[in-house]
Every structure is written in C-alpha cells, then in structure tokens.
C-alpha cells in the first residue's frame, strides 16, 4: 500500500510538471492563433504518443529483464532527478531566476504577434506544429515516467505498476486541465520551483533505490528504505541551499535556470 501511494505521488508530481509546460504552449497557441490548430496539434501528438507507447512500451516490458531494467532506470532517474534538484536548489538560493510561466507566456505571445499571427479559425500550420511538438515532447517524458516508474513495481505477484503510475499521470493531467480551465492563464499560480524540487528529490530517491537494487544491493527493510534515502536528500538539499546562499554575490541579475 505504501508503495502504491509513493508510486502514485511520484508519477503524479513528475507528470504534473510536464503537463504544466505542455499546457502553457497549447494555451498560447489557442489564444493567439486559434483553438482549432492548437487542439488538432495536441490531438495528433496524443495519437502519436499512444502508438509509440503501445509499440515500444509493451515490448520493453516483455523483452528486458527486470534487474537490468532497474539498473538502467536507476541511472536515468538519478540523472533526471539530480538535474531537476540542481535547478531547484539554484533557484531557492537565488543564483538562478525563478522559472516564471507568466513571463514565458508573455514572451511567446509577443513572438507570435510579431510574426503577424492573428486569431483566425483557419487551420494554421505553425500553430498546429508548435502545439504538436510541445505536447509530443512533454508527453514522451510523461510516458517515460509512467513506464519507468510502473515497471519498478511490477513483480511476478504484482503486475499493475504501470496502471498505478498511469493513474498518477492521469490525475495530474486532469488537475492541470481543470486548474488551467478555471484560471485561464498559463498556470503561473502553480509554485513550479517547489514542484520541481519535490520531483527532483523523489526521482533522485527512487533512482538511488532502484539503481542500488539493479547493482545487487539489498536495501535494509526493503521499500521502507526509501524514506531514509528521501530524508538524506532533503537534509542534503537544505544544507546545500544554506551553503549556496552563503556565497558572496557579484552577479547582479540571476540567470534563467533553463538557459
């Protein structure tokens, strides 16, 4: 049960970050070009995603041995997690600018206006392709999260890991769409850095745990060892933020962390 909720929460949070990014683009295209192009691009991307996951996802489960997969997934999750954690810690410490969805929205709006794109109902290739590639990219990341998280829970007696992770991702999608529809703005109210920090810590925790298992390490207490690892990363993060904040600053304008 513990593993169900940790898996659900991890997939939910990780997917929510990706959905927020994709939704921002879909919203910009919908408002500035037209909703038809935006939704068509999004729909095409979702169909492409379904095909990709259907073909490669199932093959991945059947072909690759779980221990080897845990090792590979552990490496990937650690890399992803540490990357996200680093960005979040730099933002908390003030060394990088906080990711501002509203600023991105405004910048994209200006860019589209400068290209002379006005709101019409005609199918617009630029809008369609922009929406398509954004949703496809972020969707692939969600698919990766769902498959990798889900595969870790799968065992001979318990094979619904992907369903749990998919449930978490679906809940995140539902929440992002509902929130987006209510506020009708690029989700600037979502505390993105906090979300990215939590996801970074969780990915690093799961990456360490599964990577260790893939190497042949038998963790003390099995899955319960996830909590001490989580606490280790939280304590380390707190110490690192204090350390980063103690640095004397000469940099006037913090750079954007996505640069």
């Amino acid at each position: 049960m513990v593993q169900f909720w940790t898996m659900f929460a991890a997939a939910f949070l990780a997917s929510a970050v990706e959905f927020v990014e994709a939704f921002t683009i879909v919203l910009v295209i919908g408002v500035t070009v037209n909703w038809r192009s935006s939704f068509l691009g999004m729909g095409a991307a979702l169909v492409a995603l379904a095909v990709i996951v259907g073909v490669f996802g199932v093959g991945l489960i059947r072909v690759i041995p779980i221990e080897a997969l845990r090792l590979v997934v552990g490496v990937l999750l650690l890399l992803f997690g540490l990357k996200w954690l680093k960005k979040a810690l730099l933002r908390y410490s003030g060394l990088k600018a906080v990711h501002d969805e509203e600023a991105i929205y405004e910048a994209q709006l200006e860019e589209l206006k400068s290209k002379g794109i006005v709101g019409s109902k005609r199918l617009d290739p630029f809008g369609l392709v922009t929406s398509f590639k954004s949703v496809l990219l972020e969707g692939l990341e969600v698919a990766f999260i769902v498959l990798t998280f889900g595969l870790q829970v799968n065992s001979p007696g318990h094979r619904n890991g992907i369903a749990i992770a998919a449930l978490g991702a679906a809940a995140a999608l539902g929440l992002v769409v509902v929130v987006g529809a209510v506020v009708r703005a690029p989700l600037q109210r979502v505390p993105e850095n906090t979300l990215k920090f939590v996801v970074g810590v969780m990915l690093a925790t799961f990456g360490t745990f599964w990577g260790g298992e893939g190497l042949g390490v038998k963790w003390w207490g099995g899955d319960l060892c996830l909590f001490p690892i989580l606490c280790l990363y939280l304590a380390l993060s707190a110490a690192l933020v204090v350390w980063l904040k103690s640095a004397p600053r000469l940099r006037e304008n913090p750079t954007n962390a996505d640069e």
């Binding site: 990088k96 640095a247 000469l250």
Partner: peptide, 9 residues
C-alpha cells in the same frame, strides 16, 4: 553546485 556558486561569486 560548487561550480555555480563560484561562478556567482
């Protein structure tokens, strides 16, 4: 992070 810290300094 140490590299970023030094770059900021």
């Amino acid at each position: 992070l140490g590299r970023e810290r030094n770059a900021g300094r």
